[in-house]
Amino acid sequence: MNPSPEAAANRPRRRGLLRLRQEIPRPVFIAAGWAVPLVLLLLWWAVTASGLVQKLFLPSPGAILAEGWRQLSEGILLHDAAISTYRILLGWSAATLIAVPVGILMGTYRLAEGALEPFISTVRYMPVVALIPLTILWAGIGDAQKILILFIATFFSQALMVMDNVKGVDGALIRTGQTLGFTEGEILRRIVLPAAAPGIWDTLRITVGWTWTYLVVAELVAANEGLGRRIMDAQRYLATDTILWGTLFIGILGLVTDLAFKRMGQRLFRWKGGPK
C-alpha cells in the first residue's frame, strides 16, 4: 500500500483490525463470531479423532450429535424439553410476577427500598442448592419443588435489577410530570413505568437466562424426566456423551429464549430505534 503524502508526513496511521475502539467491517465482525466456535469445534474433533483424549473423558462431536439424534428419535428429547420448559416458564413467571411490582415499589418509594433491599440483597447470595432439603419439606418432591427452586434462583436478583431499572429513570422526567399537573400515581404509571420499561424488559431477558442455568439444580431431586434429570442420570453411568449433549441443548434453548426476548423487545420499544 502506498501511503498518501499527507499521511507519510505524519505518524503513519495504523491500519488493521486492532485499533482502540475502532469500528471494523461488519462481515469481519460476524465472521469472528463464527470463527471461535468453529475453531473450538475443530480442536475438539482433532483431539478426539486422533485418540489423544479418551472417549470417556471427551466424546467426539459426532458421538454427541448421534446421542442427540437418538434422544430425538426415541421421543425422549422433546418430552424432556417440554417438561423442563414448562418448569422454567412457571418458575420464572412466578418470580417475574412478584419481582416486577416489588422492584418497582423499591425503586419508587424509599420506604420500600429501606424495608426490602437489605433482606433481598442478603438472600440473593445464599446458595440455592443448599435450600433443596428445605424446598422438599415445603413443597414435596413433585413439580412444585422444582418450580420453587427456579423461583428462588430467579426472584431476588430480578427484584433488585428491576429496582435499579426504575431508579435509573431521569429525575427531570418526574419533575416534568409534576410541573404538568399530574398526580403521583399518574406520574408513576404514565411516566416512570414507560421510561423504565425497556430496562425492565432487558432484566427479564437476562434473568430468564439465569433460570435456565438453574435447571439442573432444580431437577436434582426426585425427578424422572427433564433435560436436567437426564444429565444427572447420565452421571451414574459415566455417559459423557449424554451429559455433553444435554448441556449443549440447554445452552441452545437458552440462546433461543434470549433471541426471542430481543426480537420482542425491538418490537415493543420501536421508539428507541432499532439495534445499533
Partner: peptide
C-alpha cells in the same frame, strides 16, 4: 407546581416513547 408555570430542564426530559406531537400534547392532558 401549577400550570401557570412551564419548566424546561437542561436534560431535555422528553418522553421518549411519545412522538414530538405526542410529547407536546401530553402537556395538555
Amino acid at each position: 407546581p401549577g400550570r401557570d408555570r412551564g419548566f424546561v430542564f437542561q436534560s431535555y426530559s422528553l418522553f421518549e416513547w411519545m412522538t414530538v406531537a405526542g410529547n407536546i400534547r401530553f402537556a395538555l392532558e
